[in-house]
Design a binder for these strands. Sequence first.
DNA 1: AGCACGCCGACT
DNA 2: GTCGGCGTGCTC
Length: 828
Amino acid sequence: MERETFFADVLLPLSLSSYYTYRVPYECNGTVTRGKRVVVQFGRKKLYTALVINVHKAAPAGFQPKYILSVLDQAPVVNDFQLALWKWMSSYYLCREGDIMHAALPSALKLTSETKLLQHPSFSKEKMDNLSEKEYVVAEAIDLRKQLTLDEIIAITGQAKVISLVKNLIEKEILVPEEELKEKYFPKKEVHICLSPEYEDEAALEAVFMQMEKKAPRRLDALMLIIQSLRSLPPGKPLRRSELTRNDKGLSAQLNALHSAGIITMHEKSVSRITEAEDIREFPEIVLSSEQQLALDEIRNHLLNTRVVLLHGVTSSGKTEIYVQLIRQAIAEGKQALFLLPEIALTTQIINRLRVHFGNSVVVYHSRYGANERAEVWDLVNLWTPEQGAAPGSIVLGARSSLFLPFSKLGLIIVDEEHDTSFKQHEPSPRYHARDAAIYLAGLHNASVVLGSATPAYETMFNAESGKYAYVSLNSRYGDMELPEVLIADLKEDTIRKKMKSNFSSLLFHEIQQTLTAARQVILFQNRRGFSLRLECRDCHWIPECKHCDVTLIYHKKSNHLRCHYCGYNTRLPDACPACGGTHIGMKGFGTERIEEDISLLFPGVRVARMDLDTTRSRHSYQKIINDFEDRNLDILVGTQMVTKGLDFDHVSLVGVMNADTMLAYPDFRSHERSFQLIAQVSGRAGRKNEKGRVIVQTFKPDHPVICAAAAHDYFTLYKAQLRERANFRYPPFYRLIRITVKHKESAVLDKIAASYAAILREKFPGSVLGPEYPFVSKIRNYFLKDIILKFERNARLKSKKELLDDVTERFFRDSPPVKIAIDVDPV
DNA sequence: AGCACGCCGACT
DNA sequence: GTCGGCGTGCTC
């Protein structure tokens, strides 16, 4: 039979502008298919995992294709829905498909090669004679270990730069380089212990007992423990070796002895890392309030002829129960459901609520999840079929990246806290918005989307008002809870009258006292750590700045260091001012740390904790703080944005916004929208069943429209006013923005290039170009930045404009000095 | 992303 | 004089 020659266009997880074509080896004819991963050599030596996009018979012209080295998958790991999503994303967000592949595939599925150094085949001791001292050490090591990595050679020689050394050794036929693919995914292994079948019998056991009683009492104890443990386990549950040895390391030897005596068996099994939770068979009935039922009916009705529904429900209005019902429906229809949340932090609270209703059907997926876990979730979702119904993989709860999972039949996507800006990826490319991409993805699957928020993004509300999305509102809080009372503390007045206690107005101070006396809890919200402690010389007003970025350094008390929040630059506190030599260096501004301290001074004995990026860096510290607060081991929680997001506590009756002005002052056309959202969200934490909460907003501008709107719980007045402004100044939702950031190490070069690039853009897009301008932070990691903003009318043919932009940009930067550029479509 | 090729500075 | 810095262009 004539063998046919095939070629495969593959996608590499790199920022490249096209697919690359490889030759399919004959033995792989038929097994190389779209959506499978293959190993290819790309460049001189490096091996990569690539994704097969097309298989065809057209021999490429102009180059000799390399062969595909191996096929990694039996069945596709990426489906056509995903490839279609990637295509759309790359054209909409002006990025490379390879960038998306890189972001989409969990790292365990992306193998890359590592350079290993092996002993040269013609290695001999004689060749070691005329080596330098360090070369000799390496030669000895390779003779002993047969294989070394570059890092190992660095360790052996104690020398940081070893490339030339290695090169010499290769020439001298001591070493030979080889690329080795290393598997990144390792299944979790457990050793299960059973009694050997012949000892299941009482009599046989009896005999063993007798025998051991004198000779091996410790072994007998171990055996008894095993038998007891096996009996106390529910049927079908395995006895894990790790469970037995966890508290008693000495048991290991006894187990081994019992094993070699043939009394017990030990089987190593690969087990799932993610379906560990107890499987639940009986799911509680959900009783919806009449408002919830009404909203649910409305949503269902709308979804019959509209893809997207905005569910506008005040905080604690019981949106989750509605989501649960909608997910149930999707599952009952034999489809998958995706529940998107803005932040990983929120998953822990929500997952427990979903597990109650869906048990193991729900899997969690986000970036802080381990690489192995993510690979397992990917597999589960990929292997799910409609026949499996509510099997694990049918429901995914996750952050924005869960959008990339290999869903084959999505019925529903919920985007909760839809307004949250962390749905937009900022860095690196692809700079996508998970809410918007979810809507596109739902289109591909003919699935429904429910966007939920108490304070919808103005773009979303605009789409709802214009009829693009359906609109359903949920106005009363669950269980007849009232909205909190929002009081304004005028800082100006208190400052003049000298009534401030540190950063606390008399009103807030008083309210905190009252709340603590009533044995209730308090949450204090401080805008962000960017506004936290910085130092200043009292004599000359010198302020420490980052060497690499255009920002002031932030003081971290715990480590007694100054740190840059952009590049991580860290330095010790100077003893004296480097500018004037003075030693009066003091604190300025106030951050969560400072508030925490003030609390301790003003309210001695009160238990206070702080929740911000610093205190929640480790995996469990976040949960620990939450638990401590929930269990009322704390009276006051001081935090940044983190405390505003969807956390529900039962005993909080007071929320304080320390300084509303810092967010209002933020130089961004969305600052009003944001500030209102933030105040509304944090206010939602106050008050529980039968108890009206209170919110104190401290501000120097008590008459500011945002403050007034927040106090009145009035979303729409501010929305309407802002929309008029947006229309006047040509901002979203009436216009679409594309922000292009140009970066270079020298500001003069940057200025020149950015200016001429902007000039070309002005020529191509007259009336649509703003800038270039230095952004708020004009230098990061030694690169100067300049922004150019493009504004296009909402209804403009964006696709062709983006294609033109892509083309112009590519042409311009092809023969300009080397600058880096980043394009951000719909920046937030 | 990585890697090789190619041109300018501080060293044996 | 060379070694080695990193700017530049290419990878099927």
